[in-house]
Simulated scan of single mutants.
Amino acid sequence: MAKIRNLAACALNRLQKESQLEIPEARIEIRALLRHALGDASPAWLIAHGEDTIGEETRHHFELLLQRRMQGEPVAHILGQREFYGREFAVTPDTLIPRPDTETLVEVALGKIPQAKEFHILDLGTGSGAVAISIALERPHASIVAVDRSHPALVVAQNNGTRLGANNVRFIESDWFSALNNQSFDLIVSNPPYIAQDDIHLQQGDLRFEPLSALASGADGLADIRRISASARRYLNPQGWLMMEHGYNQADKVAEILHQDQYHNIMTIADLAGHGRVTMGQKD
């Protein structure tokens, strides 16, 4: 029987060589898989019990999980969940896997939402519901509508909302604004598709396992951002904000789109890596 620490070190070496992941990222993934194999052990338990030996059944379970990851399957799909903004969200192949970059969108949105005042928010393309639910739980006085055109994704989002107690979110099946009729909002947020449809990264890594419709958007990746920008003013209250996540090198183009659609006070907020990640504009 192997010690937990030795098993983790061996698995890290194998995964890093097979997947070409950077060592810090590979280490995080190995720990997540090992904790799952050990019955969802806490990170602290894993550190404290590194010298413990692992039973054959548990070792075999871990090996199966590791093999799935080495074949390219995302850890979020293997475990069925992903942490986002300090909470665990269920994910499936029907949803985009929530990423740390998108926490910037949540932070920027929270900066515009009053702490204890009624405020109406729309989340376009909610996927797993990570953005809408995170905002809802941080601002319980706000009212959030979360839409997605994918019914399977909405089921995941609704289940996440129920499990996490986000009672101030309403989920609607809608292709962007199509099912919203005459509703209006103080803030519209979106993490839309923004990768060019012929980008080679779509055939690499975790992206191969995620819904293409949640990733790719036209020849330059900006087709859905243009569509959202052009339509959002109709659904925004006076002085309302539109904010959208985008690629690390798209900030200037997104700002120009908002300018052409007559938004004001346009600005871009950087993510933790220093890349322009969220661009927003205000209706007059």
Rank of each mutant, 00 (worst) to 15 (best):
G86W: 01
G86L: 01
R87V: 07
E88A: 10
F89S: 11
A90T: 12
A90W: 02
V91M: 07
T92I: 07
T92K: 00
D94S: 14
L96Y: 02
P98F: 03
P100T: 03
P100E: 05
P100Y: 02
D101I: 02
T102M: 10
E103I: 07
E103T: 08
E103C: 11
T104Y: 09
L105Y: 10
V106E: 01
E107R: 04
G111P: 11
G111A: 05
I121K: 07
G129D: 00
G129F: 04
A130Y: 03
A132G: 06
I133H: 02
I135M: 01
L137M: 06
E138H: 13
R139S: 09
H141E: 15
H141N: 01
S143D: 07
I144K: 02
V145D: 09
V145M: 02
A146K: 07
S150F: 15
H151T: 15
H151R: 15
P152V: 05
A153D: 08
A157M: 10
N160D: 04
N160S: 01
G161D: 03
T162A: 14
R163H: 12
L164C: 03
G165E: 08
N168F: 01
N168E: 04
V169A: 04
R170D: 01
I172P: 08
I172N: 09
E173G: 05
S174I: 09
F177E: 08
A179E: 05
A179Q: 11
N181Q: 15
N181K: 14
N181T: 13
N182L: 08
Q183V: 00
S184V: 15
S184D: 13
F185V: 05
F185L: 00
L187P: 01
L187V: 08
I188H: 12
V189I: 15
V189K: 05
S190L: 10
S190C: 10
I195Q: 03
Q197C: 13
Q197N: 15
Q197R: 15
Q197E: 15
I200F: 11
I200Y: 09
H201M: 12
H201K: 14
D206C: 01
E210C: 11
L212V: 09
A214E: 13
A216F: 15
S217P: 10
D220C: 10
G221F: 14
L222C: 14
L222Y: 04
D224A: 13
